[in-house]
Structures are given as structure tokens and as C-alpha cells.
């Protein structure tokens, strides 16, 4: 499959401080790609270099084949959200579309309708709630029908209803064959949506590949547990990540899951017990702690 993006040995530093170190990756056409890592890992700097807002100190970036029209082919949702407060929704979207040389009133209205905001189109941005403004920004990123869409933290600040709306939209765009780059620190979100990921930490790539392949690399050493009661030291368990009545248990090497289950049952009431691969979040922690 042809690649939409090819990044080769890219580095960037500010004031002598290295922010991105020798990063290489590619994104195939039509792929949903995750750029993940904690805040401050260098994700936004990589995106800005992809958009030619910043230039790398070294390395090469190639996007699509249309070298001179690259910016028109990309849709971008920045992490820091903001719009012209005194403009109406429609004026904002038409202006941002015109800057891409691909203004389409029809598509803009269609997207507004899909996001449930068609009747608000003449409202000023300043009159909108934060959630509505977020939706307008997402429409602004895709209203010119780009082939490559970059979404920087697309779920931040969204309530569960709008989060689902955006997820559905991303899935829909993926089905339409768009190439999508999602950058986020919410690893559980990309786990379900992305074909492949690049995990970065302190500017360096630490994991790169398909989600399944990465997870299988770390083996089936995890138990997902839903329980009632108080869990304490369990023989054979190296680490417990708690989340209310749920817990992710990382087993010691060579530990038997059946024995662990017996131990758990003696402590708490078990509602669900699942032997699985570790979450991306746990993998990330393991990689970072290991490094």
C-alpha cells in the first residue's frame, strides 16, 4: 500500500533542548494511525513539522506526492482550540475552507447537519458552548474534504455524548478511505480505533507497530478483574492498577492464572475474570520504567 506520510530520522530542539529525537515512521494511505505518549512527549512538535509550521533540524518528511499543495490536502484539528469569537459559524467555516482553496458550502452544511448544528449556523462563535465550539473545530478540520486528517487530542474536553459522536465520525472517515493521524495521551481511545501506533516518550520513539502485534509482544500476562471487596497482596501478581471496582493485574513471570484466581476468590467477590494481553497504558508504563 502506498504511504501518505514518510518521516525519516527527524529531530528538533529548542534552545538546545532536544524535543524530538531521531523519529521515523510512515502512515499508509487509508490507515488510522495513533501517535501516543504522555503530555510533553513531543507529539505536537511532530505534528507541527508535518504541517510545515515548524521545520525539523534534521531528517526528512514527505507527505503525499503533491508537494506544492500539501497544506490544502491536510485537515488539522489543533490541540489548542480557538476560533474567531465575533464571526458566525458559517463565516468561520467558509473562510477556513477558502484558505484551503477547497471551499464547499454543500459539504459544510452536510457536516453541520451530521453534528446536529445546522440550525445554529448563523450564531456567533462567542454564543456557543465549549462543546459546540469543539464540534465546529472538528468540522473546520474536515470541511474541505482532505485526504489526510491530523487530529491532535480530538477527545479532550468532550462529554461522553460528544465523544461518541466524534469517535463515530473518525470511524466513518476511516471507512471513506481517509488517512488519519490521531495524537493523544488517552491510550485506551486509540487502542480501539488505530491500525498502528507510534508511542513516544521524551521525544524518542519507544514502540512502533500494529496494536495487536505490540500487545502480543508483551504476552498474555494480564488479568482484568471486576470485583467487590478489598484486594491485598496476591501471590503471583507483580502489580495492580486499580480503577474503582475494576483492576488490571500484571502477573509475575511464570505465575499460574488459576492459582491467582483461587487467591483472589478467597479475598473478594469476583464478578468478572479475564486473562488478556496488557493495555497500551500498561505497556507504556512498562516500557518507560524499563528504559
Amino acid at each position: 500500500m502506498e504511504n501518505t506520510v514518510e518521516v525519516s530520522h527527524v529531530s528538533k530542539s529548542f534552545n538546545g533542548q532536544s524535543v524530538v529525537r531521531d523519529i521515523s515512521f510512515d502512515i499508509a494511505s487509508g490507515e488510522v494511525f495513533g501517535l501516543i505518549g504522555p503530555n510533553g512527549a513531543g507529539k505536537t512538535t511532530i505534528i507541527r513539522m508535518l504541517l510545515d509550521i515548524m521545520r525539523p533540524d534534521s531528517g526528512e518528511i514527505r507527505i503525499l506526492d503533491a508537494a506544492d499543495k500539501i497544506k490544502d490536502m491536510i485537515g488539522y484539528l489543533p490541540e489548542d482550540r480557538g476560533l474567531y469569537r465575533r464571526l458566525t459559524i458559517m463565516d468561520t467555516l467558509m473562510y477556513l475552507g477558502a484558505l484551503k482553496n477547497r471551499q464547499s458550502k454543500e459539504r459544510t452544511l452536510e457536516l453541520l447537519d451530521k453534528m446536529g448544528m445546522l440550525s445554529n449556523r448563523d450564531m456567533k462563535i462567542s454564543e456557543l458552548s465549549k462543546g459546540m465550539q469543539q464540534k465546529i473545530q472538528i468540522i473546520a478540520a474536515i470541511c474541505h474534504d482532505p485526504g489526510f486528517i491530523i487530529l491532535d487530542e480530538p477527545f479532550s474536553g468532550l462529554d461522553p455524548v460528544n465523544m461518541k459522536l466524534v469517535k463515530d465520525l473518525i470511524i466513518q472517515l476511516g471507512k471513506e478511505g481517509k488517512t488519519i493521524l490521531i495524537s493523544t495521551h488517552m491510550m485506551d481511545q486509540v487502542e480501539r480505533m488505530c491500525d498502528r501506533i507510534l508511542m513516544i516518550h521524551k521525544g524518542s520513539g519507544v514502540l512502533y507497530g500494529s496494536v495487536g502485534e505490540i500487545k502480543s509482544r508483551f504476552g498474555k500476562n494480564t488479568i482484568f478483574l471486576e470485583f467487590e471487596g478489598q484486594l491485598e497482596n496476591i501471590a503471583g501478581v507483580r502489580k495492580i492498577n486499580y480503577s474503582g471496582n475494576y483492576a488490571e493485574l500484571i502477573l509475575e513471570e511464570g505465575a499460574d492464572a488459576q492459582n491467582v484466581l483461587k487467591n483472589i476468590v478467597s479475598m473478594v467477590r469476583v464478578n468478572k475474570f479475564e486473562i488478556s494481553m496488557p493495555s497500551l497504558n500498561e505497556i507504556f508504563i512498562q516500557v518507560v520504567e524499563g528504559s
Binding site: L51, I53, K71, G82, L83, R85
Partner: peptide, 14 residues
């Protein structure tokens, strides 16, 4: 710069 529109603009123009 304050309302961060600049980043959207710079993703479209030089």
C-alpha cells in the same frame, strides 16, 4: 495567538 486560531491558519498558508 491568544485564541490559537493562528495554528489553524498556519496549517493552511505560509
Amino acid at each position: 495567538k491568544e485564541n490559537r486560531v493562528i495554528e489553524i491558519l498556519l496549517s493552511s498558508v505560509s
